[in-house]
Design a protein around this nucleic acid. Structure first.
Lengths: 205, 205
DNA sequence: TAGATTGTTAATCGATTAACAATC
DNA sequence: TAGATTGTTAATCGATTAACAATC
């Protein structure tokens, strides 16, 4: 174990390992090897061993890794051994899909509130949530002490809302708006834009 | 211009540049510099110049890049100077959101057909599309000669459907199912999993 | 012309892979 | 014990940055 500064590229692979291990556990498997895990996720065994060994000696020579133990360690490392409240801004189709998405359960996240700037939408329900007025975003998010947000609004509004989120203390933004956000260094942003992802593949066609 | 093998990491940045340039064009801007573009997308000016120069000498010393010209070149390079038909497999909430998503327009993509394995859904409409039976996936996709697919189905079904898509000639898959897919090397996969993206950020919280 | 900015080179920095001793 | 697999080292490979001549 070294525990110095971990490169972001390694951190980015940990959730992939976590997901695959969770699936193995669901299938009743008890142990795995860097070889097997690597085949499942498409990453070399050497790299998996190197990545994991950054955080500790979680494996055993000859037998590999206990899936349950490694799962728990990865959850700790990624801080998803708890449940994070998440605010959703934008109650359009994508916002609805995320509210109904079952994949946050058991993976560390729970939607805590939904906001929209459209006064016609405010007060309506999405799933179990009542859409709140985006005007009250900063105040409400501060009150809830939420650190994670998802942005499913048009590109034109995204930068302004991102700034409000930062102001409210949000430290991680999952941005579905098709635009690069400018936020302080201490705020992390991840981008999900289907067109951008597709364009990255058409190059090879 | 070199035009040898371009690293995937560079290809991955091109859609980001494209998106930012499109936005500048929409705002009526005519030229930009590596400096300005870099500030917008959060990438160093040197890297942007290096990336772009892999494909040709598109800039002018002293004045920078013509936005319109660079847009067209990037569209050519990424092969989105045409419109790609895309099949969508999975008519759940996420599938619905993608059908209604306006962000494919003018970015090179158009949904051509929707499939679902649920017989209760087959025949129903989503937007302008009639949901087709996933049983006929291979046959229909071959007939349409579609090369790009989006997968919005449960993880348990994803690998089997991916194999059918590959069999049908699909070369690029945008996978929303929370699982790593094993496909031949000539097939590209991009992953969109909100939990995975969020977990990548919680490490830093 | 003077100022600005490209394209490119060389240097630096970082990531991946191969190999193997250690050891379960 | 024999076989398997880790954690780690050293070598390789690749990406980023800084700097600047070229030139618009």
């Amino acid at each position: 174990m070294k525990a110095e500064k971990i490169p972001d590229i390694i951190v980015g692979r940990l959730p992939i390992y976590l997901r695959a291990l969770q699936r193995m556990a669901d299938n009743g498997l008890k142990t795995t090897s860097s070889q097997e895990l690597g085949e499942r996720v498409g990453i070399s065994a050497a790299q998996i061993r190197k990545d994991i060994s950054q955080f500790g000696d979680f494996g055993k020579q000859g037998t590999g890794y206990s899936i349950e133990y490694l799962l728990n360690k990865l959850r700790e490392i990624l801080k998803v051994d708890r449940v994070w409240d998440v605010v959703l801004v934008g109650a359009g189709d994508m916002g609805h899909a995320l509210v109904n998405y079952q994949g946050f359960k058991n993976r560390g996240f729970r939607i805590a509130a939904i906001f929209d700037a459209d006064k016609n939408k405010v007060g309506r329900k999405v799933g179990e949530f009542v859409i709140e007025d985006a005007e009250n975003l900063v105040e409400k998010v501060k009150a809830l002490d939420v650190k994670v947000a998802m942005l499913t609004i048009p590109a034109t509004a995204a930068q302004a809302v991102a700034e409000k989120l930062v102001q409210a203390g949000v430290k991680a933004i999952l941005n579905y708006a098709p635009i690069s956000l400018n936020v302080p260094d201490h705020v992390k942003v991840q981008y999900i834009d289907p067109s951008t992802h597709l364009q990255r593949m058409t190059y090879y066609l």
